[in-house]
């Protein structure tokens, strides 16, 4: 086995072990979208009329509409959580252990990203299973075709977390960033309402939503769940992922003096 594969397995394995040890985190990650699905969606069902828009071929209940958005929410929270753990690792020193391994830094960071994404995907499947028990079913094939979409969305949001972690110097600054990243990203997207609804109330908000990479990640997941391919959504999500990864690698570059402010 090459050192690359060995290190990938170890880093992903460690992320998984850490996740298993934090059972509260797993439960919290599941309860959050379930509250939205079972409470919020039930209340909004009556208020929000949805017309037939792709990929749906018939009128759908609001609960069905928000499932892909809630999958995205799980991944968004997870991306930020893994970024939080990176900042924690840096304060605690275990990040140093990782970054001094004799492998290229981009690979080590990619392994971290892959670990976080794998955990996100497991959580999304747990959520989809509960939603199915509740009666919100996708086409059976959709549960398979959504996998690559989740991987791309998870990598993009994980890369955003990585980027944030390279610029956040202290754990205490994190809560503010979460509020400025998670909430705007989630609410200014197509997760809770279709974009045409948004356009009815404000053109500007609609345009912001259309620019938000999270919107495209959600649409990618939504189409994939119905065994359809949304090339534009994939393109924008990949582009956003590439930009975030490039910026994060720059942020973690050892010759950038900003890295060194904390010994």
């Amino acid at each position: 086995m090459t050192p690359y594969v060995t290190s990938l397995r170890a880093i992903v394995g460690r992320e998984a072990l850490r996740f298993i040890h934090q059972r509260e985190r797993f439960i919290a990650a599941l309860v959050r979208p379930l509250v939205w699905l079972l409470v919020f969606a039930a209340g909004f069902q009556a208020a929000l009329g949805l017309s037939i828009i792709p990929p749906y071929q018939t009128y759908i209940a609001y609960e069905t509409y928000i499932v892909p958005g809630l999958c995205g929410m799980i991944m968004l929270f997870n991306g930020m959580q893994s970024s939080l753990s990176l900042v924690y690792d840096r304060e605690m020193g275990s990040m140093k252990l990782l970054l001094t391994a004799p492998l290229p830094r981009w690979w080590l960071l990619f392994c971290k990203l892959a670990g976080a994404t794998a955990i996100s995907i497991l959580q999304v499947y747990a959520f989809l299973a509960i939603a199915a028990l509740y009666g919100i079913n996708m086409p059976p094939l959709g549960y398979i075709t959504v996998l690559p979409a989740l991987a791309v969305a998870g990598l993009m949001l994980g890369a955003l977390g990585l980027l944030l972690s390279s610029f956040i110097k202290q754990l205490e600054n994190f809560a503010g960033v979460m509020n400025f990243v998670i909430f705007p990203m989630f609410f200014l997207s197509s997760a809770l309402y279709p974009l045409w609804k948004m356009a009815e109330s404000s053109k500007l908000l609609h345009d912001i939503c259309a620019l938000n990479p999270f919107t495209h990640a959600v649409e990618l997941i939504r189409f994939a769940l119905y065994v359809q391919f949304n090339a534009a959504a994939l393109g924008w999500t990949l582009l956003a992922a590439a930009v975030f990864v490039a910026a994060a690698l720059w942020g973690y570059n050892p010759s950038r003096t900003g890295m060194s402010r904390r010994g």
Partner: peptide, 30 residues
Amino acid sequence: LGIVFQQPTLDLDLSVRQNLSYFAALHGLS
């Protein structure tokens, strides 16, 4: 290079052996 950092860098939830195996893998040993 072998490094012992000033801050403790053991993962406290893992056993000693698991901690060492993780590090070994970072150096391509399995």
